[in-house]
Simulated scan of single mutants.
Amino acid sequence: MTLTERRKPDTVDLRVVPVEQVLDRIEGALQVSLDRHAVVHKRCSVGAPTDRDTWVRIERRPLAKIGVQGWNGTECAARLVGVAQPVWLGCVVWQDADEPVMWRADETGLLPGAPVGAAVLSEDPRLPDEWWGALNASLDALASQGTLRIATPDTVTVTQPFVTKSIRSVFPGDFDTTVERWVPAHADLNWANMTAPTFGLFDWEDWGKAPLGLDSASLWASSLAVPGLADRVRRERRRDFDSRDGKLMTLFVCSKILGPYAHPEDPRLAPARDMAKRVIEELKRRC
């Protein structure tokens, strides 16, 4: 199979589809050489180090999933103040000649460390207090800034109807799901998008305004297979979790774990179910 063959634009897996021609084009446009022996393939993106000690991340996205705000999240995140992230250096963007998709390659500085782990951890990474302090500083700085962007986790725009539908699909009840505060969020906060031992936050493609507490709840959900780690996330981000919006975002992430695509052997099922029950009771008491 080649990239020019006709197929549904959202079914391509870049882990199995050849991308040599794409890499050639990027090298010419950015005037850089990619280390072809160190290319990292993911389903929707590819990354590689360069000969000038930088990193290039390449993403393929169907036109139908590029909203009115575009898909320049990494570029727009460069103006954020007080957030630990790789420096953004430049990009190249083009529309595919054969399919209704676009390609984008962003060049950034190298990460300050290795990713903490997979998106969902099964072991405690035993991060030092300094790391947690840097995480808190970055998340607090991010939430305090302004943007017109709307968060699009998994390329889905976060709106009030979407939040309500997601929660109600798993947790019907007589509690209010109206979000009170919308603040800038990374919107894909998990252990695969942060570095250690030096803290850094990367993959900013879908950041934007989201309900207060989305990032904290997402990180907690990624930690549920390690109870002590999940508890640490809740302690560190207590202000978010104690807020009404933070409780709604806890239900929002639990709905993803407990929804129709839940895996029966997912170790997060029981703790997510227990927490959801507790949060719903708290929300009802506030009504």
Rank of each mutant, 00 (worst) to 15 (best):
R25V: 07
R25Y: 12
A38G: 04
D35F: 11
P49L: 03
Q31G: 14
R52T: 11
A29S: 14
V17S: 10
V40F: 10
D51T: 08
L34C: 04
V32Y: 02
V22E: 06
P49I: 10
K42E: 14
D24F: 07
I26V: 15
L34K: 05
P49V: 05
V46D: 04
V32P: 01
V32D: 07
V40I: 11
Q21A: 10
V17C: 10
V17Q: 14
P49D: 03
L34Q: 03
G47E: 09
R52L: 00
D51V: 00
D51F: 01
R36I: 04
H37S: 13
V17M: 14
K42M: 07
V17D: 03
V16F: 09
V32H: 02
S33K: 14
H37R: 13
V39C: 06
V40T: 13
C44N: 14
L34S: 01
S33G: 03
D51R: 03
T50C: 07
V22K: 12
P18N: 02
V46C: 02
L23M: 14
D24K: 04
V40M: 12
V19R: 11
L23S: 02
R15W: 07
A38T: 11
R52Y: 05
D24W: 10
P18Q: 09
S33V: 07
A38D: 13
D24H: 09
I26G: 00
D51Y: 00
V46E: 00
V22D: 05
D24C: 03
A48V: 05
V19N: 04
G47R: 11
V16N: 02
A48N: 12
T50V: 07
D35T: 08
V32C: 05
G47N: 11
V32R: 05
V17L: 11
Q21N: 11
V46A: 08
T50N: 11
R15M: 12
V22I: 13
V40K: 15
L23G: 02
R43H: 13
V19Q: 12
R36A: 10
R36L: 08
L23F: 05
A38V: 05
V46G: 03
D51W: 03
E20R: 12
Q31L: 07
S33T: 09
V17W: 13
G28F: 00
L23P: 01
G28E: 15
I26L: 04
A38Q: 13
P49Q: 07
L23D: 01
V40Q: 15
V17R: 15
R43Q: 12
S33C: 04
K42F: 04
R15S: 09
D35R: 12
L34P: 02
T50L: 06
V39N: 05
S33L: 06
K42H: 13
H41Q: 10
V19T: 15
D51N: 15
R43S: 11
A48R: 12
E27R: 04
A29P: 03
C44T: 14
L30N: 01
V40H: 13
G47A: 15
C44H: 12
G47F: 07
D24Q: 15
H37A: 13
R43P: 01
L34I: 00
I26Y: 00
V39L: 05
R25M: 06
A48I: 06
